[in-house]
Lab assay of single mutants.
Amino acid sequence: KKRTSIEVSVKGVLETHFLKCPKPAAQEISSLADSLQLEKEVVRVWFCNRRQKEKR
């Protein structure tokens, strides 16, 4: 599977969401993915990776 490069503008939206809610529910991930025209899996993994980054 190819890596998905995420646009800077999209990263901004994801970051804003992350600050409000670092662990979104599946439904939130779905609606976020739809509005950003990304796959749900890509958004889910982004949040996973972002949470791990917080720990470091």
Results as ranks from 00 to 15, higher is better:
Lys2His: 09
Lys2Cys: 02
Arg3Pro: 13
Arg3Lys: 12
Arg3Cys: 14
Arg3Trp: 03
Thr4Met: 13
Thr4Asn: 10
Thr4Lys: 12
Thr4Ile: 13
Thr4Arg: 07
Ser5Val: 15
Ile6Cys: 04
Ile6Tyr: 04
Ser9Cys: 12
Ser9Asn: 15
Ser9Met: 07
Val10Phe: 00
Val10Trp: 09
Val10Glu: 14
Lys11Ala: 15
Gly12Pro: 08
Gly12Lys: 12
Val13Cys: 06
Val13Lys: 11
Val13Gln: 14
Val13Leu: 12
Val13His: 07
Val13Asn: 03
Leu14Val: 02
Glu15Thr: 02
Glu15Met: 01
Thr16Phe: 04
Thr16Pro: 01
His17Cys: 06
Phe18Gly: 03
Phe18Asn: 01
Phe18Ala: 01
Leu19Asn: 08
Lys20Glu: 08
Lys20Met: 02
Lys20Gln: 05
Lys20Pro: 02
Cys21Gln: 15
Cys21Met: 03
Pro22Tyr: 00
Pro22Gly: 01
Lys23Phe: 14
Lys23Tyr: 15
Pro24Gly: 01
Pro24His: 04
Ala25Met: 11
Ala25Glu: 13
Ala26His: 09
Gln27His: 11
Gln27Tyr: 05
Gln27Trp: 08
Gln27Asp: 14
Ile29Val: 03
Ser30Gly: 10
Ser31Met: 13
Ser31Leu: 11
Leu32Tyr: 06
Asp34Ala: 09
Ser35Cys: 07
Leu36Met: 09
Leu36Val: 11
Leu38Tyr: 06
Leu38His: 02
Leu38Lys: 05
Glu39Trp: 03
Glu39Asn: 11
Glu39Ile: 06
Lys40Ala: 12
Lys40Asn: 09
Glu41Thr: 06
Glu41Ala: 02
Val42Leu: 11
Val42Tyr: 07
Val42Cys: 10
Val43Gln: 05
Val43Leu: 07
Val43Pro: 02
Arg44Met: 05
Arg44Asp: 12
Arg44Ser: 08
Arg44Gln: 11
Arg44Pro: 01
Arg44Thr: 08
Arg44Tyr: 04
Val45His: 11
Val45Glu: 14
Val45Pro: 07
Trp46Met: 00
Cys48Gln: 14
Asn49Cys: 04
Asn49Trp: 01
Asn49Ala: 07
Asn49Val: 05
Asn49Gly: 03
Asn49Phe: 05
Arg51Lys: 00
Arg51Glu: 09
Arg51Pro: 01
Gln52Asn: 15
Gln52Val: 07
Gln52Met: 13
Gln52Glu: 13
Gln52Ile: 11
Lys53Ala: 11
Glu54Val: 04
Lys55Cys: 12
Lys55Tyr: 09
Lys55Met: 09
Arg56Tyr: 11
